[in-house]
Amino acid sequence: MTGSRGWWIVESGAPWIAIMLITSGFHFFRGAAVDGVIFLVVALPLLADSTGMIPPARSRLHLPHGRVLFALAIVLGVPMVLAPRYSATETLILSALGAVILVVVWADPPAEPHSARAARIRTDGGARNSHAGRRAAVLWIILGLVLCLWELSAYFLGRPSPAAEYNFPPLSDLVGPMLDSLVGRTLLVAAWILGGIALLRRGRST
């Protein structure tokens, strides 16, 4: 893959839709039907969108920042930390958040002003067309694939018995117990919210 063609794998819709469908299939396979439905329900509109069946949508909504964003993070984070794990409250909060977030990210971000676009290209060196950008894309994709394969290997090797599961713990078994303490849960929920905010801000001119 050379030049901007090398970006097909990260910019085309096909690999992302495939990831969603494979993930959905895997969740059905492991008996987590609700998770399977979640990924399928998102993958199907993406598939329809990739064929042009859904009209393009561009948002005029700019993400809030500063104090408003901090307040929203607190309003979201405090009940997530304090509500009992696996409770109806957690289900309600995350269901509502998921629906809102999906609407927000579905629409393309507001059009980027020419000045902001020029500044971005100066800043990131036009990562799309640079060797540095392609190298970063390849290395992060490798890292992601290795993580997925390691997690899947642990899952399948740990399936036969509790002893096998102890020897091959999936990441969920390692992270899950940290959420049982208030400190661990506060830190992980904070990291999750900050990660989400950082993710939502990417690809948008600020």
Binding site: V10, T123, R202, G203
Partner: peptide, 13 residues
Amino acid sequence: SLLDQVMRRRAAR
């Protein structure tokens, strides 16, 4: 900067 590129595409985002 990698995410900035990737997140411009709906499917990836």
